[in-house]
């Protein structure tokens, strides 16, 4: 079976073959194939710029792989600033011996994911490191996007804003946990990994007064809401029952003592919208298959500044904490 060798990262003929057969073939665009030392870009508006490194075990999981993740992750960070994703860099760090077919599968899914936002990979780098130096493959992507709607910020939440979630929470974290720990549970649970830009573009086109957007990645919904409450010095009141959690995610949380609201997502975003636009925002979101269960989960108030309060259906309230430390299952 063909595998990636140290020579593929050596800068010589093998490197060129890898670049031509794989990266140019799947990422092809005018800027990339010029093969200059740096990509030359023309940008007319204010830009957003972000970077993220991706490492996930297993590298292929139900609902995606590290390639899909590396594009969706960076594109989503741009989208959450109201920026249309335009140009990405991609840097691969590959452990010697990775199967060539796996690498090809990863690159293919990156290309497929790029098509969803129209963003292009315009520059890149490949390093191959000796076996044992890293776990199979790390990918770094950086991205530039043109700001289509300004003033979307963590510190822009206002009293009376409506908080929405684009879908149910916890899928990516629960999926990875299940696969990583080799839990013998049969489940059709899939990661929510997805490019969110089309939905954000839809909101901008419809002129929705979006105050804050954030994808609920590591730390999950709990982290986003707490970051917002602190940055905007407001209180977010959440109706616990309105937060969507699938039966599969709930089941895994039950067995291991996790909170679904703390689990990572890779295609789920949280919105703060002016209350008069809330209904319209929901209508827009529900047109996209990955947001068809978008719902209102709470409101912004001044009750406990910098805090997130969960209201239960049985009439009690508690603070929702920022998740701390690594995720460890409760013992009993």
């Amino acid at each position: 079976m063909k595998s990636v060798q140290l020579s593929h990262g050596g800068g010589g003929e093998e490197t060129n073959t890898l670049i031509n057969d794989l990266f140019y073939r799947y990422f092809e665009n005018d800027i990339l194939i010029k093969a200059e030392d740096a990509a030359v870009l023309e940008v007319k508006k204010k830009i957003a710029f972000t970077t993220d490194s991706f490492t996930v075990s297993p590298i292929v999981f139900n609902g995606g792989d590290i390639g899909k993740l590396s594009i969706a992750g960076t594109v989503n960070d741009l989208a959450m600033m109201g920026a249309r994703p335009l140009y990405l860099s991609s840097a691969f760090m590959i452990e010697e011996g990775l199967s060539y077919d796996t690498l090809k599968q990863i690159v293919e899914s990156m290309a497929k994911e790029l098509a969803k936002s129209g963003a292009k990979i315009v520059c890149g780098d490949t390093k191959v490191v000796p076996r044992g130096s890293l776990d199979k493959i790390f990918i770094n992507t950086a991205g530039i996007g043109e700001i289509e709607q300004e003033d979307i910020s963590v510190s822009n939440l206002e009293q009376g804003d409506v908080i929405m979630a684009s879908r149910d929470v916890g899928r990516h974290g629960a999926t990875i946990l299940m696969e990583r720990e080799g839990l013998d549970i049969s489940s059709d649970l899939q990661s929510d990994c997805e490019t969110l830009w089309p939905a954000v573009e839809g909101l901008i086109k419809e002129d929705i007064a979006v105050h804050s957007l954030r994808d609920a990645t590591r730390g999950g919904l709990s982290a986003v809401l707490n970051e917002w409450a602190q940055a905007s010095d407001i209180c977010i009141e959440v109706e616990e029952d309105s937060v969507g959690i699938s039966d599969q995610v709930r089941g895994i949380c039950e067995m291991f003592g996790f909170e679904a609201m703390d689990l990572a997502n890779e295609g789920t975003f949280i919105l703060a919208v002016a209350s008069e636009d809330a209904e319209k925002a929901l209508q827009v979101l529900r047109q996209y298959h990955f947001c068809e269960n978008a719902s209102v989960i709470g409101t912004v108030s001044e009750k406990y500044p910098s805090k997130v309060v969960l209201h239960s259906a049985h009439g009690t309230s508690r603070f929702l904490d920022l998740p701390k430390g690594e995720l460890l299952p409760r013992i009993c």
Partner: peptide, 17 residues
């Protein structure tokens, strides 16, 4: 006695009821 009960009592806010 058990921490699991403490967790339930806190999570569901039972003292408030």
């Amino acid at each position: 006695v058990c921490g699991g009960h403490t967790h339930t009592i806190m999570k569901y806010g039972l003292p408030q009821l």
